[in-house]
Design a protein around this nucleic acid. Structure first.
Lengths: 164, 164
DNA sequence: ACTTGCATGTAAGTCGTTACATGATTGT
DNA sequence: ACAATCATGTAACGACTTACATGCAAGT
């Protein structure tokens, strides 16, 4: 959230929209997390709220403070932690010896349909984001998503092939 | 946990060890989760406990019941959900325009050291697992881990290269 | 009239970790 | 003697989701 505020003040709703249009496939957060988080950040002096009415709608728009910027920079400077994969499909494959032989192939094929749907979604998202965003890093992460899900599709494809 | 019990009765400690030697890089669970989970599964009739003393040590060993097997099979039959990537490095890259230009390259290089360490770890794990495990699926998931982290290393490598 | 989107928030519950707490056995 | 490993568990906490609750504005 602090990162998003680095690009300028935003309401919780706006942050949610930004996530949906850029970080959705690797990070997204429900409204039930965003609003309480802003309240907590405000208490800690990381953000300040500006309340206004625009077009008859109440907007609680938050800006990052110097304290918030310091916290953001500290977080940015830390080496990223290696993440686990935590893919449900992998866990199922792990137990495939206890799953009906005839169902394995079908399950993988159906899973691949979803993966390819995600790839198409991300390609469309990139096309849309390109129009409004010229920050190369925000597009780079989308590229990663496209390449990762393509890799996953190919791996599962080869795996399903060997299942025959 | 039900999946692990499909290969035979196990104590919580044994499940933990099995996870460390095979699913660690995509699924692992702390003792603080395993023991309460067994108690819950027992209440639900999914598992039964056999208490014994072996070599002066108390062992609460759990077996899967027909009810548990049914639940496991039902879970196995469901199409796996597409998972999010949730990699901290990706989130940092997303905000790289707000991070010191000179620090970016260094951060990525350090991250890659960890990734390559993980690849080496998984290759060693596979070598060890091959000796005791002839279930092809349990080795296949390890292969995925090796290939995924190699892909990640290459992607980050290309990205870091362009950072110059 | 009705639906979708904008906009904010609370409450309950799930999932999982870390820290704490205990104690025996095995290897050096 | 000491450390590592075996072995089981509880308590506190953190992160996050889903469901609930409200209400206005804009488009069809």
């Amino acid at each position: 959230m602090l990162g998003f505020l680095m690009d300028g003040p935003k309401t919780g709703y706006e942050i949610k929209k930004h996530m949906e249009h850029s970080t959705d496939f690797f990070y997204n957060t429900s409204p039930g997390s965003i609003y309480p988080a802003f309240q907590k950040l405000e208490k800690e002096g990381m953000v300040v709220m500006d309340q206004s009415v625009e077009g008859g709608r109440l907007k609680n728009r938050y800006s990052i403070t110097p304290i918030g910027k310091k916290a953001f920079n500290k977080w940015m400077g830390k080496k990223p932690a290696l993440s686990k994969i935590r893919d449900e499909a992998l866990l199922k494959i792990f137990f495939y010896s206890h799953f009906d032989r005839e169902k394995r192939r079908d399950q993988m094929d159906k899973y691949r349909v979803d993966i390819l749907g995600r790839v198409a979604e991300l390609k469309e998202l990139k096309k849309q984001l390109k129009k409004v965003e010229n920050n190369p890093f925000k597009l780079k992460t989308l590229d990663f998503g496209i390449e990762y899900y393509s890799f996953l599709n190919e791996w599962i494809g080869r795996f399903a092939e060997n299942l025959k």
